[in-house]
Design a protein around this nucleic acid. Structure first.
Length: 184
DNA sequence: CAGCACTAATTCA
DNA sequence: TGAATTAGTGCTG
């Protein structure tokens, strides 16, 4: 059930060094912009039980996708909802359903944990959705930062930068839609 | 089994 | 009003 050797790359964006692991054409993991390549690599491979030896570096890996990610951090409205194929091993059916639903959320839009739970047929499973988001292997591709609390709060964020990164990304997408009075 | 990136309801100032 | 607490909740390691 694999489509080739796994490789990784790290490239510079306006916000920092973005990390990417893929297998064939399918993206397995991503890591949000970090201050250094070293930090990016650590964040990218940690938790995946992978060492740099397991996933050779390849500068121009998925070059087209790299350009789109760079563009995102330049402020462009980039849609990742369908394009990069993703490979999500070791994920429960529930987890996959939640991530799939989350991926549909458009640039600049948000949903609550409960709404996302409902879209997977588990309207009471908001907290479980939080579990899935916390372990999202492909942040940005699956826009887990667009999930906020029902009471208007930000909720948490486990990726690089924590909730500050989450808020920054939301502001970046100009979430003025409604809800989310980030701060007051 | 214990622990969560949650929520709605309840309980105080 | 509104902050703080309490159950209730479904999934994960």
């Amino acid at each position: 059930m694999d489509g080739g050797a796994m490789r990784h790359t790290i490239f510079k964006t306006r916000w920092g060094y973005f990390g990417l692991v893929c297998q064939g054409q399918a993206v397995c993991r991503t890591s949000l912009p970090a201050a250094s390549q070293t930090a990016a690599r650590q964040s990218l491979l940690t938790g995946a039980n992978l060492g740099p030896a397991d996933v050779p570096f390849e500068k121009d890996l998925l070059a087209a996708l790299q350009r789109r990610i760079v563009a995102y951090f330049e402020g462009e409205n980039v849609d990742f909802s369908t394009d990069p194929a993703v490979c999500l091993p070791n994920l429960s059916v529930f987890g996959q359903a939640i991530l799939a639903a989350c991926r549909q959320i458009a640039f600049g839009r948000t949903q609550t944990y409960a709404q996302l739970a409902a879209s997977a047929g588990r309207s009471q499973a908001a907290r479980a959705v939080g579990n899935v988001m916390a372990r999202n292997p492909v942040p940005l591709i699956v826009p887990c930062h667009r999930i906020i609390r029902a009471d208007g709060g930000l909720g948490g964020f486990s990726g690089i930068g924590g909730t500050a990164m989450k808020q920054r990304m939301l502001l970046h997408e100009r979430v003025s839609d409604r809800t989310v009075c980030l701060q007051d």
